[in-house]
């Protein structure tokens, strides 16, 4: 009986802790999401106050829209490339700068700098750097005798250009997330392993990686969501999904239909199909990485 009321009291305290966050979530995010969901069943123009009910028509139309599938394909292509590359590089950087030595702060700060440049400006800079004739990136490649990479005008490699930009921009942030995680691994574990004769590689796979599991789960799930939603570089670096539409992602599709075509019903329907896909992927990832909340 006493235990029961103890648990009960814990539950109430827990709800109180969550209440401010949940109240704000309800008001500013779930509520707009619900309204967008309703919009997706209507024919509604962004700038018009008229709307007519369509039922599932927007959804049916989308499922027959080749350009929608193409945009989903582009989003997934980008995500599949960027997730392993970015995560591996971020972890490598974290391992390189985790221990204290003179000057390490400078390296940490340098690796973190790209993250504090705004995405819009970074995307413009990369657009200029990628220029086939005069961009810094290609001038250097050409100067050291390598073939130039025309990311901006070759549809086959354009997405690689976005992968490089995305990784450059975000790896510093995930580096500090990994650093925070590495910080939680007690040093005596490594010392004990070393006494047992474990080499650095063995120590990495038997201590670091398993103990970073929760952080790793966070990094992978968040990178997946961010990657699938990528928009600004598509809009700026690739000037709106170019060359020849090869970088039009799902988020670009949604933006284009909502704010260019002003077809709000169609855009929100696309957003909800996309939402369901991302959610399912994230839930599978959570299951696989078994990074659940404690019970």
């Amino acid at each position: 009986m006493k235990i029961f009321s103890q648990r009960n009291r814990e539950a109430v305290a827990a709800y109180l802790f969550i209440l401010p966050a949940f109240g704000l979530l309800l008001l500013f995010i779930l509520n707009p999401m619900a309204q967008s969901l309703i919009t997706s069943f209507y024919d509604v123009n962004l700038i018009s106050d008229q709307r007519s009910f369509l039922g599932m028509e927007n959804y049916q139309h989308l499922l027959n829209d080749a350009s929608f599938y193409q945009s989903l394909g582009n989003s997934f292509y980008f995500a599949i490339l960027v997730i392993p590359i970015q995560t591996a590089l971020a972890l490598t950087l974290a391992l390189l700068v985790k221990r204290s030595f003179p000057g390490v702060g400078v390296f940490r700060t340098i690796y973190f700098i790209p993250f504090i440049i705004s995405m819009g400006v970074a995307s413009s800079i990369f657009r200029m750097m990628y220029n086939k004739e005069a961009g810094l990136f290609n001038v250097i490649l050409d100067g050291i005798g390598l073939p130039v990479l025309p990311f901006l005008s070759n549809p086959d490699i354009a997405m690689i250009g976005i992968v490089i930009l995305g990784t450059w921009k975000s790896m510093g942030f995930f580096m500090i997330v990994f650093l925070a995680g590495l910080n939680n691994i007690p040093n005596d574990l490594y010392e004990a392993a070393q006494i047992d004769g474990a080499g650095p590689i063995k120590r990495f796979f038997s201590i670091t990686l398993p103990l970073l599991k929760k952080v790793m789960a966070f990094v992978i799930i968040i990178t997946t969501m961010d990657a699938l939603k990528i928009f600004i570089p598509i809009y700026v670096t690739m000037a709106g999904g170019g060359p020849a539409g090869s970088t039009r992602t799902a988020a670009y599709f949604i933006y284009n239909h909502a704010f260019q075509h002003m077809d709000m019903g169609y855009a929100t329907a696309a957003a909800f199909i996309f939402f369901i896909i991302i959610l399912i992927i994230s839930l599978i990832q959570m299951r696989v990485l078994r990074s659940d909340v404690e019970y």
């Binding site: 086939k132 004739e133 005069a134 901006l152």
Partner: peptide, 9 residues
């Protein structure tokens, strides 16, 4: 071959 697909700014 008189028109460039991509040129400098």
């Amino acid at each position: 071959g008189v028109a460039p697909i991509e040129q400098q700014e």
